[in-house]
Design a protein around this nucleic acid. Structure first.
Lengths: 206, 206
DNA sequence: CGGTATATCTGAACGGTGCAAGGATACTAA
DNA sequence: TTAGTATCCTTGCACCGTTCAGATATACCG
């Protein structure tokens, strides 16, 4: 009994706090959603997890950037997951692309600070975290895979992927950062706008 | 002689420092270009202009955001100016749009930190600075004006403007923030990619 | 079971940031 | 010349990320 108890404790409360790393990421996501990316400080995070601001160093994250990278990575995982779910069962390539795009912008508007962290400049150099780039690439691959099914060359697919992603990402960031007001769209919602925009590529998606 | 001398001094060294506001903006642009947006602190700016960090308050800028807004505004002015210059004499609507887009991305890559300041989240709420939004709108108007010359309805023009700007802005930010590597393009340069992308809208720009 | 090693967390402190308050200073206008 | 005012400086605060030395709880081994 003491053995299994110990094992349980090891899982739930490893060492002093127990899974501080996991707890930190969870708390960070909450702080992010509540106070925005500017409110996510190590001191605030420490207070939220009931720990000293220096507790994250050495053992769990050597750096604030490592913490941010971990948080951003879960963000990219969620984004890719949501996009994949939203696009399943699409009858055509065009509709699949539409759904992916709508899912992308929906994620951004519903997880604004997280999206800002994922694509912003808070974490100074992404090169330090190759895993991050890989996870971020999952969403990209969804678009790419949808397009490569077409009969045209792979070259065109790669080109179209970047174009569609750029369009989608540009609109999303402009809306999220409030540089672009929905009134300027000429359509009711951002999602409707995205669909209409994808339509512009018309023949290229047939 | 003392009178004219005094007048000269008044122009060059008004009060203690003289045109601190203008000097601050100029120095800020230099710091920005040299050390990036992260290196632009009030203390660094103070050292560059030979003044105390608190000298900017009350008289010139009540806030760091006001300083950043002023810097960003000159950025938007330069951007609009460059775009207008690069697009003059374009033989067709499509080429005019192409040139505007290329100019946009060229400005971003050649003034990376300034562009990041203009479209980033360093200055917390743009609503405080209505002038900024107006100046930023100049570039937008250039695209809009180019498109409204077409025979189709104004509704379509407004829609196309947002679409093209989004595409252009998305690609630009992804490239500037190094989320997208030029190798992924399938073309040699970013500018070539932009032109090719505009071509996708083909019939809509005829 | 006991003792040592190691992973983990704490506490104090450093240099950095933006910024508020009040005192000093130089220009302006009378 | 003198009064007034715009400008700038000094001091100090709260917050930030981070380092380092030391305390503490867990894990491992005899």
């Amino acid at each position: 009994m003491t053995a299994t108890h110990k094992a349980d404790l090891q899982k739930k409360f490893r060492y002093h706090h127990g899974n501080l790393r996991e707890a930190a990421i969870t708390a960070a996501l909450e702080i992010l959603a509540r106070d925005g990316v500017a409110g996510l400080s190590l001191r605030a995070l420490a207070k939220a997890t009931g720990v000293t601001p220096t507790a994250f160093y050495e053992s769990h994250f050597g750096d604030k950037d490592e913490l941010l990278a971990a948080v951003a990575e879960t963000g990219f995982q969620r984004l890719a997951l949501q996009m994949a779910e939203d696009a399943t069962g699409a009858p055509s390539t065009q509709e699949r692309i539409e759904r992916l795009a709508v899912s992308y912008i929906r994620f951004a508007t519903q997880n604004k600070p997280l999206f800002q962290l994922m694509f912003g400049r808070e974490l100074s150099d992404m090169k330090r975290f190759p895993t991050l780039a890989m996870t971020a690439g999952k969403s990209y691959s969804l678009i790419s895979a949808a397009l490569s099914k077409r009969t045209d060359g792979a070259e065109d697919a790669r080109f179209l992927t970047v174009a569609i992603w750029s369009l989608c990402h540009g609109l999303t960031t402009l809306v999220v950062d409030e540089k672009l007001k929905p009134e300027q769209f000429g359509v009711d919602t951002t999602e409707a706008f995205v669909k209409k925009t994808i339509g512009l590529f018309g023949s290229h998606l047939a």
